[in-house]
């Protein structure tokens, strides 16, 4: 290896590096939305719609960058310095963490936007194989002998905690609140889980792509998405008699947005989620809009009515639920024994 060639490589690298930085600096403003896993498809459409709307209103071209991952992991990244202008996560607790650890957004962030800063909601449903060969109708069928249930690990996955709490709410109602019996029922349920993935997308791939399991406990939007991606003739959606209301919250990370001179566009971005167009796009991407009036009726028809419990009312809020169920040594650790 000659010195000359090495030097030219280094020069080339430096030039590439500079040009890379330069394109960043020359572009119009960019907004970074740090979000969780199942919102990828929704925000892809929504970002295009918002950029068009912003352009029409202000004449400015705005680029929106997306980052997706597990909700807790994404919150951690923002705490560690990922320059998010807005966060659109799965759990309010994750945004609380950012507020507590960095002070980059006010502790009462949830009061800044309507409906506790949750512009869309979702719930937990079952996805089964076409024709529902195991005849799964409700939570009670999941603890039956010979039924394989796919759900991620509630210790690592936000979505898995919703699954767990929905199951718990059903069991508590059926068994009249006898906690010992409820615990046994939940233990039976997790005994039917052959593999605990670390995240919701991992479980979905296990079920849909690798063909493992009879039923996937899943976000409603995720279940619809699987039908869309893998063909509606492969999977059926089963809505249980009782489920849980998930309210994925959104917030402007004021500290970052101010530093990047993006505050106005960040606030407008989140407001646009509540606009008729934003709500319509949410419904189209299988999220339940908080204001259904402007959504496409055909989209709304896909969301069946279901009795919903809420974390705040029925479990005393996320902080308490976390402590009761998912902390180290709490109920989940007590009941879960890996089968292999």
């Amino acid at each position: 290896m000659r010195l000359i060639t090495r030097r030219s490589i280094a020069l080339g690298a430096a030039a590439l590096f500079l040009s890379f930085g330069a394109t960043q600096a020359l572009a119009d403003r960019t907004l970074l939305n740090v979000s969780y896993d199942p919102t990828r498809e929704f925000y892809k459409e929504f970002n295009a719609a918002f950029a068009a709307d912003w352009k029409a209103r202000t004449g400015e071209t705005i680029t929106i960058e997306q980052s997706h991952g597990g909700s807790g992991k994404q919150a951690r990244a923002v705490i560690d310095g990922l320059q998010a202008d807005v966060v659109t996560l799965a759990l309010a607790g994750d945004i609380d963490q950012i507020a507590n650890k960095t002070g980059k957004l006010p502790k009462d962030w949830a009061a800044k936007l309507p409906h506790n800063s949750a512009p869309y909601t979702s719930t937990i449903v079952f996805l089964v194989r076409k024709g529902n060969p195991k005849g799964i109708k409700d939570w009670g069928d999941l603890v039956k002998e010979g039924v394989q249930v796919i759900t991620p690990n509630p210790k690592t996955s936000g979505g898995a905690r919703w699954n767990y709490l929905a199951a718990w709410a059903y069991a508590a109602k059926q068994l009249g609140g006898d906690e010992t019996k409820v615990k046994e029922w939940i233990a039976d349920l997790y005994r039917n889980v052959p593999v605990l993935d670390t995240g919701a997308r991992g479980s979905t791939t296990t079920f849909a792509q690798r063909g493992i399991g009879d039923v996937l406990i899943s976000w409603e939007n995720e279940a619809f998405l699987v039908q869309k991606e893998f063909g509606a003739d492969n999977f059926d959606i089963v809505v249980p008699s009782l489920s849980i209301l998930a309210e994925p919250p959104v917030a402007v990370v004021t500290g970052n947005a101010k530093a990047k001179n993006n505050l106005d566009v960040a606030e407008a971005y989140l407001k646009f989620l509540y606009s008729p167009e934003g709500q319509k796009l949410a419904a189209r991407n299988f999220f339940r809009p908080v204001d259904p009036s402007s959504a496409d009726p055909a989209d709304l028809a896909r969301f069946p009515k279901v009795e919903l419990v809420s974390v705040d009312k029925d479990f005393g809020g996320w902080a308490k639920a976390q402590k009761d169920f998912f902390a180290d040594g709490a109920i989940f650790d007590q009941i879960y024994r890996p089968t292999n």
Partner: peptide, 26 residues
């Protein structure tokens, strides 16, 4: 590197004060 250069890391505050982004960047 997160512990070192992250916003909560040892050098985080200094890097932020000088507007240098190391992690979550190239």
């Amino acid at each position: 590197y997160v512990l070192l250069f992250g916003a909560q890391g040892w050098l985080g505050p200094w890097l932020q004060a000088h507007d240098i982004q190391i992690i979550f960047a190239v």
